[in-house]
């Protein structure tokens, strides 16, 4: 197949259009995952976050100065609508509480873990694996810092797909900046495509 034919592949486009992806968190990981998946042609995103855009978020998150003060899920839905056609975004303003984190994601094909604290990450992973058997979850750990792109690797354990840098410091002790957070977010988004479409031949 030539490159042009692949790019215009109607089968891939149709499958992505029919897919739905849940994103837990609309911060540095979630906002970048959402933009990448919307641009790739995913038809339906369910994005859950309770937070408001702050100016300090703009060093890594897909928002703009004039959106400071808005709910992240609403600002993100707006930004996606400005970027591409045909991506339906369900913007859910909700803090995911322990014990009921999976509710919004029952109907999606893949869940993306894009939360901030390690506690919340572990909680969501546990609950998706226990409550939604067979549903893939794509998580990220170790996004703080800069450089060391070669340390980022990917491991799979059953339905858990984890993009990680095991040597990274916690975000309490190191900076969060667009390049490394974006690297993880795009790695996660690329993994979502592979889960939806199968491994590229």
């Amino acid at each position: 197949m030539t490159r042009g034919k692949i790019m215009d592949d109607p089968i891939i486009a149709r499958r992505l259009k029919k897919a739905s992806v849940g994103i837990a968190g609309a911060g540095g990981l979630g906002s970048n995952v959402a933009m990448a998946l919307a641009r790739a042609g995913i038809g339906h995103l369910v994005i859950v976050d309770f937070d408001i855009v702050e100016e300090k978020n703009l060093n890594r998150q897909q928002y703009f100065l004039d959106q400071v003060g808005q709910y992240k899920v609403e600002a993100l839905k707006h930004n996606i609508a400005r970027a591409v056609r045909g991506c339906m975004v369900e913007a859910i303003k909700l803090k995911l509480e322990k014990g009921k984190m999976t509710g919004p994601f029952e109907g999606v094909d893949v869940v993306v873990e894009a939360l901030d604290s390690a506690e919340a990450k572990a909680g969501l992973i546990e609950e998706v694996l226990m409550n939604l058997p067979g549903k893939p979850i794509v998580a990220a750990s170790g996004v703080a810092g800069y450089g060391h792109s070669e340390r980022v690797f990917f491991r799979r354990s059953g339905d858990l797909y984890l993009v990680q840098d095991e040597e990274a410091k916690s975000s309490d002790e190191d900076v969060l900046l667009a390049p490394k957070v974006g690297l993880f977010a795009y790695y996660q988004a690329n993994t979502v495509l592979e889960l939806l479409l199968g491994v590229e031949k």
Partner: peptide, 27 residues
């Protein structure tokens, strides 16, 4: 998966595979 609140009481039988994945804050 073994929930964290059951780590104290969950005993690991012989001849099983145990996987431990650690999570670091940041997002």
């Amino acid at each position: 998966v073994i929930p964290r609140d059951r780590f104290k009481e969950t005993r690991i039988p012989d001849n099983v595979e145990v996987e431990v994945m650690h999570l670091t804050s940041g997002g």
